[in-house]
């Protein structure tokens, strides 16, 4: 190697080195920016000296009393009840919604029938209406059945799951990629369509089923719009999001409950995050696959 080329190589190496260092710095900054709010919320949840908002992050007095206050409960704070409500809703939705989605997506992907295109277009158009629009009448009907206010859990489960068949896109995208020859071979052997679904397609679809269950389980935790409307200011029927928002809704309640709100947030975030991390692989597959196939 001549001296010239080795010099060139060295300068190239230096160039990539500086490039990498800049990238590391940017990535480190990004990581800090993205993680810092969570550190702050955890730190503030342990603050013992005051329940108000303050201009510093690190507690002067570490304490668990915010957590204790959440579980002691009061007229305003019914945290265990909210938590249980949300958990029940999430589990019910995680069971029912994937079944609905699976039925619709499998049918639209693997079977051909006369009104199929019409059905898909109709669902696309219906999906363009804001979902909240239908809540006004649904609320009136559900409340006459006693499924709002204190009975909001059941009303919400109905609202979340009844129309969930419309969210079939990601799952259909998955089924579209499963070779049709599999079905055909089984059909030639005399299997009914139902048998093809249960003994061939479902065992193959573990990733997409887990993805659907995971997203179905997570969505009720974050819903505010429907939950607040159905619960209708009855603190018995609220989910965590509505309850916590209510807890810090006015200036006076904010001052009294701010650190408790942080503690409540931490308690929701921990189990969800752990669950999410365990199933991350499936989530990533679903997200990337779903976006590509539209």
């Amino acid at each position: 190697m001549s001296e010239k080329t080795s010099k060139k190589l060295k300068s190239l190496k230096r160039k990539t080195m500086t490039g990498n260092i800049i990238t590391y710095v940017i990535l480190a900054i990004i990581s800090i920016v993205w993680l810092i709010p969570f550190f702050m919320i955890v730190l503030e949840s342990f603050r013992g000296e005051t329940t108000m908002q303050v201009g510093y992050v690190f507690p002067k007095e570490w304490s668990l009393k915010n957590y204790a206050a959440l579980f002691a409960g009061s007229d305003v704070v019914k945290y265990p009840k909210w938590y249980l409500n949300t958990l029940i809703i999430a589990i019910a939705v995680a069971i029912i919604q994937p079944i609905m989605v699976l039925c619709v997506s499998y049918t639209l992907s693997r079977t051909r029938f006369a009104s199929r295109k019409l059905l898909m277009n109709a669902m696309l158009v219906i999906g363009m209406f804001p979902g909240f629009l239908s809540m006004i009448i649904l609320y009136k009907v559900l409340s006459s059945l006693g499924l709002t206010g204190t009975g909001a859990i059941w009303g919400l489960i109905l609202v979340y799951t009844a129309s969930s068949g419309m969210g079939y896109y990601v799952s259909k995208g998955f089924f579209d990629t499963v070779p049709k020859s599999l079905d055909e071979a089984a059909r030639v052997d005399g299997a009914t369509r139902a048998r093809v679904l249960f003994s061939i397609i479902i065992p193959m679809s573990k990733p997409i089923i887990i993805y659907t269950i995971l997203t179905a389980f997570m969505s009720p935790w974050g819903d505010f719009m429907f939950a607040s409307y159905i619960a209708h200011n009855t603190s018995e029927g609220m989910n965590v999001a509505v309850g916590l928002n209510n807890m810090i809704g006015s200036a006076s309640s904010l001052a009294a409950h701010y650190t408790e709100f942080c503690a409540g947030g931490v308690l929701v975030a921990i189990p969800i995050t752990i669950l999410f991390m365990c199933l991350q692989k499936y989530y990533v597959e679903g997200v990337t696959g779903g976006a590509v196939k539209g």
């Binding site: 039925c103 079977t111 219906i126 649904l138 109905l158 009844a162 129309s163 068949g165 139902a194």
Partner: peptide
């Protein structure tokens, strides 16, 4: 089989989305 599979989901969509939207 498509009719069996679609019956419940479509009924749900009809009752909880289509009819309320028409009403609104």
């Amino acid at each position: 089989f498509h009719k069996t599979l679609l019956a419940v989901p479509l009924l749900g969509i009809l009752l909880f989305t289509v009819l309320p939207i028409v009403f609104m």
